[in-house]
Amino acid sequence: MNKETENLRKEIVRISGVNPVKCMRCGKCSATCPAYDEMEYHPHQFVYMVESGDIEPLLNSKSLYQCLTCFACVDRCPRGVEPAKLVEAVRLAAVRKQGANHLKADDIPALLDEDLPQQAIVSAFRKYSK
């Protein structure tokens, strides 16, 4: 792992508080994930790829924005790894960069319908933009 990757890995571990080494690679997170089919990299891959420093593909993946933060993987993981927190940390590592917001205010009007609760917009901003 080069220095830059190592730093990125440390940053993600720090933000998430998740220790990917605890993973025993059972795959229960990916078995549980309701957004599995929309993801290119699946929850167990997030854990493994962060652990091994293969983070660049994750940063550029649409998978980051498919996680529903439903915490099913967090609850069912037998090792207490909490994959959703790791996914969130990688997403933050991506969107915290200047100009890298995934969702922009200008995009919103086109996405709205009149029944959509405010909660959805607020939540999406929290998750997708900084």
Binding site: P34, A35, Y65, Q66, L68, T69, L111, L116, A120, Y128
Partner: peptide, 19 residues
């Protein structure tokens, strides 16, 4: 106790629909 899709409805309504 499974997710309805939550805020994904905004960006990916198809995903929310499936759930």
């Amino acid at each position: 106790n499974e997710c309805c899709g939550g805020y994904i409805a905004l960006e990916n309504p198809e995903s929310a629909k499936a759930k």
